[in-house]
């Protein structure tokens, strides 16, 4: 038995996955398809025949997708030209690289502060204020570590933002 609604939904499923076509576009195209189907049925065609004629008239899904992509911004087009998945992979790799780089900077930062502390401790040994100076250095080290941690968070958020804009959040 030919289930018209089921067939129509299936036909649109392939378009739904295209990021260039949103829910409202789908509703509009669905209205078009059903209008054509109704017109064909009025001409005496069966539901099945009407469905095949209407979808053929509407055009091939791939072509339709390409036409909708034309309306999008440059960055979006660029992504669509790449395979979606490979572009997402590229973004994730970039994020990983950034995070690794920042982790290295964090370690480097710790080493610099540690040497500064040891050096200063040796210099001010025996001085009245030696303890407060060391405490001050420790506090500064914490502050700079905190800032680096924030930078990591910001970098991660930035990458996530790009993925969201480009519609990669689903994975």
């Amino acid at each position: 038995m030919f289930d018209l609604n089921e067939q129509v939904n299936q036909w649109f499923n392939t378009l739904k996955n295209a990021r260039a076509i949103d829910e409202q576009n789908i509703d509009e195209l669905k209205d078009h398809l059903f209008s054509e189907i109704e017109a064909q049925i009025a001409l005496g065609k069966s539901q099945e025949e009407a469905f095949f004629i209407a979808t053929a008239l509407l055009g091939d899904q791939q072509q339709l997708k390409q036409e909708f992509i034309k309306n999008k911004q440059k960055l979006f087009k660029l992504c669509q030209q790449q395979e979606d998945a490979s572009f997402d992979e590229l973004l994730l790799k970039q994020e990983e690289k950034q995070q690794k780089g920042l982790s290295k900077m964090l370690i480097g930062n710790a080493i610099i502060w540690a040497s500064a502390m040891i050096g200063t401790a040796l210099l001010v040994k025996g001085h009245d204020n030696s303890q407060s100076i060391t405490m001050l250095l420790v506090a500064l080290w914490f502050a700079s570590t905190y800032l680096f941690g924030d930078m990591k968070k910001v970098a991660k958020a930035e990458c996530q933002y790009f993925r969201k804009v480009l519609g990669f959040q689903k994975t």
């Binding site: 195209l29 509407l58 055009g59 036409e67």
Partner: peptide, 15 residues
């Protein structure tokens, strides 16, 4: 017209 092609044109005119 290939029916589906009309809609992106409409959306461009709307923009």
């Amino acid at each position: 017209w290939a029916d589906g092609m009309l809609y992106p044109i409409m959306h461009r005119l709307e923009k």
